[in-house]
Design a protein around this nucleic acid. Structure first.
Lengths: 107, 107
DNA sequence: CTAACATTTGAATACGTGTTCATATGTTTA
DNA sequence: TAAACATATGAACACGTATTCAAATGTTAG
């Protein structure tokens, strides 16, 4: 008899999975890379120039973002162009911006 | 006329602000604390018991979540009850769950 | 008041990870 | 082929931070 424990609270592995995603977005360099790729596919070199990061660092970050299925890459000649896998990440960012924009509450 | 629409790339400080939020949610312990407080206010002791974390650790995390205006605390007798400051965080989590639930794409 | 409970705080440690550098792989052009 | 460009990879370092422990603060009951 299989008892699915938690209905209200998400399972520990779901939490861990979500936390992994949030951790990836929790680095300013990586988050800016994500944002840069939201509108249109951008090459690694252009990301590096636009954000003033070394191509090596950008590539390291892109590997993680690819593994997390946040960004996907496609080759065009010598270059790799990266873009968002789905629209959810943009929603996540917009929601978080709304949270940050909430008026202060006196404690 | 309020233009909130992001023109193209958000400013560096906005990115840093967002990244700070995501980083806070990027730890499994902290994320589970947030989730535990989404539905109703919960006391520190109950959070600790429910998640099997030390009260000290929970309190340390709560301090950060309070500072980020993700959770707020109210005293009831000896205990402190924590709950979400606004609804946006729940939206963020739901959107992220939708992302994680996206079907795989062969690369 | 004291005692018991609930939460907070500070210091110390252990571990993960963002970044850099050097090198390797892959792709196009001469 | 070789050379030039674009990206990726691996090792090493530096830094932040999650966690633990001990002690302090705050609150209520006796």
């Amino acid at each position: 008899m299989k008892v699915v424990k938690l209905e209200r609270v998400e399972s520990e592995e779901s939490i861990a999975q979500l936390a992994d995603m949030f951790r990836l977005m929790g680095d300013a360099s990586r988050l800016s890379i994500i944002v840069a790729c939201l509108r249109e596919p951008v090459s690694v070199g252009d990301i590096a120039k636009q954000l003033d990061l070394s191509p090596s660092l950008v590539s390291h970050h892109l590997r993680l973002l690819r593994a997390a299925r946040i960004l996907k890459g496609e080759r065009r000649g010598k270059q790799m162009f990266y873009s968002a896998c789905d629209k959810h990440i943009e929603c996540v960012i917009d929601d978080m911006m709304a949270h940050v924009g909430e008026p202060d509450v006196e404690d």
